[in-house]
Amino acid sequence: MNEPIFEGLSLAEIREINAEMSHYENKTAVSIEALKIVQKHRRWVSDQCLIAVAELLDISPAQLEGVATFYNLIYRQPVGKTVIHYCNSVTCWMLGSDQVGESLCRHLNVELGEMSADGEYTVLPIVCLGACDHAPVVMVGNELKFDITEDAVNEILGR
C-alpha cells in the first residue's frame, strides 16, 4: 500500500497533490502547491522529486523548474529542519535587521542559505513580513517573532 507510484514521491504526497487538483482548471495550476507539498514532507525539492512531480502534473521537468526557480520559498537545495527567515526590508533594516542576520549566522556558524552543521537550521533573508510595527522581525519555521534583540536570537536558537 505504501509503495510510491511515482518514483521519488510518497503516496501521501501524491494524495495531497491530487487533492489540490480539484480546485483548479488544470494540472499545471497545481505546480506551486505541489512543490510546497513535497517541501512540507522533505524540507526541500530534490531533482528526483521535481521530475516526479512534473510527471504527475504532465509537464516537463524544465517547465516545472522554470516555476520552481522563480519563487523564493521553493528550496532546490537542502535546508535545515527549521528555516529562520529574517526580514531585511526597509523598516526592519532601519531597526537593525543586518545585525540580526549576522548574529544568527555567527551563532550557527553558517553563511546565509547554508545548513548548520547539525542539520537543524538554515538562515535566509526574506522580504517584509508584514509586522513592521514590531521590527526587526524573524520567522522561525512558521512562527513570527517580534522585536528581535540579541537576547532574542539566543532564545530562538535555544542557547
Binding site: 483548479y24 499545471t28 495550476a29 497545481v30 505546480s31 512543490l35 516555476v67 519563487y71 523564493n72 521553493i74
Partner: peptide, 21 residues
C-alpha cells in the same frame, strides 16, 4: 503563494494562480 512581491501585481498574480512564473 511561494513568495515574490510581484505576485501582488494583479496579472502576475493570475499567472501564479495558474501555476506559472
Amino acid at each position: 503563494g511561494a513568495g515574490r512581491y510581484i505576485c501582488g501585481e494583479e496579472t502576475a498574480l493570475l499567472n501564479a494562480l495558474e501555476g506559472k512564473r
